[in-house]
Nucleic acid binder design. Structure first.
Lengths: 346, 346
DNA sequence: CTGAAAGCGCTAACAT
DNA sequence: ATGTTAGCGCTTTCAG
């Protein structure tokens, strides 16, 4: 347990700890000569500064915390990837913390972040104002993702759910001429799910007035999408299109329909929301609302970084929205073929 | 910037900081009465202990660091998920750090971990002994994943690449009777890639002696798999089966073959390695070597946790191997149909 | 240019 | 049972 500290280096180099600190941090105030000697000793001793000790005094951890819900899958992977990408270019580290939907868990996670991170990115579609107020240290710069909260207190970044849903319904109803569109909704207490459903309803009124409105309950899982598809099958009368509130449900529905012998997109078009990587690999390739997930993560981090640099920028803290467009593949019957690459490995 | 410290609580509650510490940490030695008062004050002031300060003295951060290569995709997401799952049940936090393949980057990442983590999980298939020796603090418990290193110094956890490759070749050559098997290899400097290729060669000698050996270069990317498929197509003579060193390459190859009008699995069987989530969604669903990626991550963390609990357990540090079996789907022509669910959302 | 000393916020002896 | 005190390893005035 040879934990070598700055003192060891100082003693070995025959200088004070102050000089070692100055030399190693390039703060100036040391002869090139002594600096060289100090660096040599440090290297020889394999000295590495102690992070906690340093941040205790500098009040900087160069780490940002990310609090995510306890859901996994490609949406979150991509989001983390975006955050990480941006964090790295800024020399920031990432402390991830997934929490059960139970808010107690999230609260505990939030508390332990104090003194370990310089700022926070919170994706908690169910977190309400009081929860955040109770658990977010006042002084910790925070960026909220996909949150219903508006505010002076936090910086908020949202996906344009209404716009995306509207664009999809428009495509289906107007361009493809399919007015009978069923919707598979997400969890009722999820903000994104709410916005997407509302977007669907509004857009139906706008682009397919008088057409039947059919909303099935889902949980954002493939499984629940499958069940919704089965339900559709069992109902005896299929819609001409199914718009799911996320891709995994769309895929589940696709499977159910295929098993039921339904031709997609021939008989029923199926579309999703998010454009997770899998979307392009299923057959037929999924037409969906493209959310630039990686960009979302990246933007969140950039905003947070800006907050860190400019202490009292809280004023500039307007709620921004990340636009999304639709990407047309095969599952809505619009085109016969397509192929694209990603460069992701393994 | 009202950063409330333990002193504030002490003053407000009319006690010493020591009592506050004792009360809040449940160390005992305080009247139930005063403890109650202290807790009330702490709650009212919304006091949250400062992590860095605390770990400076306790020498515990309750955080473990994960150093991953700068590759993204489902393999890594699943791995992180496994680690995170296990970490959470043990009350540990996760500091992720992806590094460019450039070792300088990794070195820097490793250094900044000092004082921020209690232990390390390193997945660095190219990291050699000297690199690790130079950059890993002697005193930091470390678990290496998929590393060629053996050793007394680190705990190593590997995937059974040779066994997996062997099982797949056996399935293809013996059970399916396809002896003409081409192999798409991974990056030459990657340990997993090396082992898988070697496993293929050995198994071919064992199960398909005399059969032509065909090895194409790949990079573990879908794109490189596609190119390999195209190469096969261009060569004029297709093998009866293609075994790719990972799933993404298998999928790329699948696409190339499909575009070339080749029937998979009718004319050519295609199989992969890893069993990433996408594997079951492509058409035809991919037969592959199942690596229980989540379990790999989980095991890594459990081992690390064991190391943390038992300081001098370094002796018990044998290199373990996680077995893998093959999962037969449609791309090798063995079965007509299949469907499975995952419960992952979004 | 360099060293001594004062903390950062907290816990853990050691007193009382 | 509670308070006092000495650090954890580091940076940063402030003297010299």
């Amino acid at each position: 347990m040879t934990t070598v500290t700055i003192k060891d280096v100082a003693r070995e180099a025959g200088v004070s700890v102050a000089s070692v600190s100055r030399a190693l941090n390039g703060t100036g105030g040391v002869t090139a000569e002594t600096e060289k000697r100090i660096r040599e000793v440090a290297a020889r001793l394999r000295y590495v500064p102690h992070g906690a000790a340093r941040s205790l005094i500098t009040r900087r951890t160069h780490t940002i915390g990310a609090l995510l819900p306890d859901m996994y899958g490609e949406f979150f992977s991509e989001l983390i990837r975006g955050i990480d990408l941006a964090a790295r270019t800024r020399g920031l580290h990432l402390l991830v913390s997934s929490a059960h939907d139970g808010m107690d868990d999230a609260a505990a996670a939030l508390r332990t972040m104090r003194g370990r991170v310089d700022g926070l990115i919170v994706l908690s579609p169910r977190a309400d104002a009081s929860f955040l107020h109770a658990n977010l240290p006042e002084s910790l710069p925070t960026v909220l993702l996909n949150s219903p909260l508006r505010g002076r207190r936090y910086s908020v970044l949202n996906i344009d759910n209404p716009g995306g849903a509207r664009a999809m319904v428009r495509h289906l109803a107007v361009e493809r001429g399919l007015r009978d569109i069923a919707f598979i909704a997400g969890p009722p207490d999820n903000f994104d799910a709410q916005q997407r459903e509302e977007g669907y309803r509004h857009a139906m009124a706008e682009f397919a007035p008088g057409a039947p409105l059919r909303v099935l309950r889902g949980e954002f899982t493939e499984d629940s999408g499958y069940r919704a598809g089965a339900e559709l099958l069992a109902s005896g009368k299929l819609p001409r299109a199914v718009f799911a509130a996320n891709d995994m449900m769309a895929i589940g529905c696709l499977l159910a329909l295929r098993e039921g012998g339904v031709d997609v997109p021939g008989e029923v078009a199926v579309t999703g929301f998010d454009d997770i990587p899998i979307a392009r690999y299923v057959t037929p390739a999924l037409t969906t609302v493209r959310v630039r997930i990686v960009d979302l993560g990246r933007s969140a981090l950039e905003r947070l970084a800006a907050l860190l640099d400019a202490p009292d920028q809280t004023a500039t803290t307007q709620a921004d929205t990340l636009g999304c467009d639709i990407v047309v593949r095969d599952s809505c019957g619009a085109r016969p073929h397509a192929r694209t690459f990603t460069n992701k490995a393994r």
